[in-house]
Amino acid sequence: MSIDSVFVHKMWNDYELSKMVDGGVPFPMMSDAGGKVGTIYGVYDDDAGVETRGRFIIDPDGVVQGFEVLTPPVGRNVSESLRQIQAFQLVRESKGTEATPSGWKPGKLTLKPGVDLVGKVWEVWKTDMAFD
């Protein structure tokens, strides 16, 4: 979503993005003229008249699980967004019985929060697991 019109979205997709991604952008490119939606989401920059790089992960119940907002010159890390979605999906499927510690990615150890784990995290989770 950006403040550009759907016409500009079409041109950008058809003339540039479709040369990067086969078939073009597969999801809706939304137009937010005036930044109304961006204002509600706290990512519209009144002074510059544009939206900053906000990214919101919303679960199947419509609940915001996480967000990240960057100023325009720095791009996102798509792998990190995917990792977070995988983590939120794992937690949801476990109905909250599992949690993903710092540095978790698919295949790595999860924690089962409960009375037995209090004071024992150090036994199962090591600080080097926070890094790739």
Partner: peptide
């Protein structure tokens, strides 16, 4: 098309904002 966020209930959604089309980052 017109998109309502509520149409995506039941699915995981990534909602992204960005400064503008044809920007470089």
């Amino acid at each position: 098309v017109n998109v309502n966020l509520s149409e995506y209930l039941g699915k995981w959604v990534v909602l992204c904002f960005y400064p503008g089309d044809f920007t470089f980052v």
